[in-house]
């Protein structure tokens, strides 16, 4: 997993609530057996019509919006547990998703792939959407060490992240390394466990 420490970037806004994982990556693209290449089908059915032509008014087809930060409406990533959603976002180039609320499994999948789900209050999210609407090249800075998100319009806003996950992102290591290192403790636990 890649480290995440600090990022300054313009952002791509999708002010839609309850964006589910079927929109992020439709099921028919889940047939791969590797983790790569999902980016080209990110938001597939919002980006392209049934004949494969670009849908012009969708933001990913609009050249003025670019960057490694995605800003989305409340309850982002609901629905399926498919980690392909996080892979698609990462493969497309996003490192940070900002929303006022994230679905649980999506959050955990994002963190396991070095993508930071950054939760802000609804009113801050609203301000951010406004800022981009006014100025598509507005820059946002995320500082994981200090746990702050900053821009001209919102100033410095702090965000929460649990200390274990923060350490993982800063150092670029994931849960599995830790779990493998405690396999003998897990074996001890198995000896005392009661099961039917």
């Amino acid at each position: 997993m890649d480290k995440f420490i600090r990022l300054k970037s313009t952002a791509v806004p999708i002010p839609v609530e309850d964006i589910d994982t079927d929109q992020i990556i439709p099921a028919r693209f889940l047939k791969a057996t590797t983790r790569d290449g999902f980016g080209s089908n990110l938001f597939r059915d919002w980006r392209f019509d049934n004949n494969g032509n670009s849908i012009h008014d969708f933001v990913l087809n609009n050249n003025i919006y670019k960057g490694q930060i995605l800003i989305a409406g409340r309850n982002f990533g609901c629905g399926s547990s498919r980690e392909h959603a996080a892979w698609a976002l990462g493969d497309y180039g996003f490192r940070v998703i900002i929303s006022s609320f994230f679905a649980d499994i999506f959050k955990s999948n994002a963190l396991n792939n070095g993508i930071l789900p950054l939760q802000v209050e609804d009113k801050i999210l609203h301000l951010i959407f406004k800022e981009i609407e006014k100025n598509a090249s507005a820059e946002f800075e995320v500082d994981l060490e200090r746990q702050t998100l900053s821009s001209e319009e919102i100033g410095d806003v702090s965000f929460e992240i649990d200390s274990y996950k923060k350490k993982c992102l800063l150092n670029g290591y994931d849960d599995i390394d830790f779990l493998i290192s405690i396999r003998s403790e897990i074996e001890e636990f198995e000896k005392i466990q009661e099961t039917y």
Partner: peptide, 17 residues
């Protein structure tokens, strides 16, 4: 439900964090 990274964790260690 869990993501694929977690599937790998369970296969490898029978545990999750």
């Amino acid at each position: 439900g869990i993501g694929t990274s977690q599937v790998e964790q369970v296969l490898s260690t029978q545990c999750l964090i």
